[in-house]
Amino acid sequence: MNVPAARSTPPTATVEALVRDWYEALGRGVPAEQLLPHLANGLRIDLPTTTLRGRQEFERWYRTGACRPLTGARPEPGGIQVHMQSPVHALASVAVAGAGDVPPARHEWWVVLQDGVPRIRTIAVQPRPAPHPTRDVQGTER
């Protein structure tokens, strides 16, 4: 993957490209060496069942192939929304469609400018609850 370096505030398109390309690279199972340079110091990934901290723990986890909770589905079309929170912080909200045994989820990605380059600092995966079944006045579900 090739994400352009930014010396000052990165445009939202740059952040969106980083998130999309890194996520797709993860799903393709590219060598870890291609993923690691895009991770910030103090990486934290909150998954439904565990928390990963730091690049080395991420790398070990990635090499086990246990990354399906993060990679099991693709972002929905137009599902990456980037909001610049400061000149050095971007918050990306990623809507992920369910696929197979992977439920729909929403990811929250923080991207920060470190050493003049946007890097992924945190990813939080939150399963999206199934839509509430609506009830009719008699209390039966439909």
């Binding site: 990486l43 400061s86 920060v112 400018l113 050493d115």
Partner: peptide, 8 residues
């Protein structure tokens, strides 16, 4: 803090 890579 972000510019200095401080995360905790």
């Amino acid at each position: 803090f972000a510019a200095d890579g401080i995360s905790y």
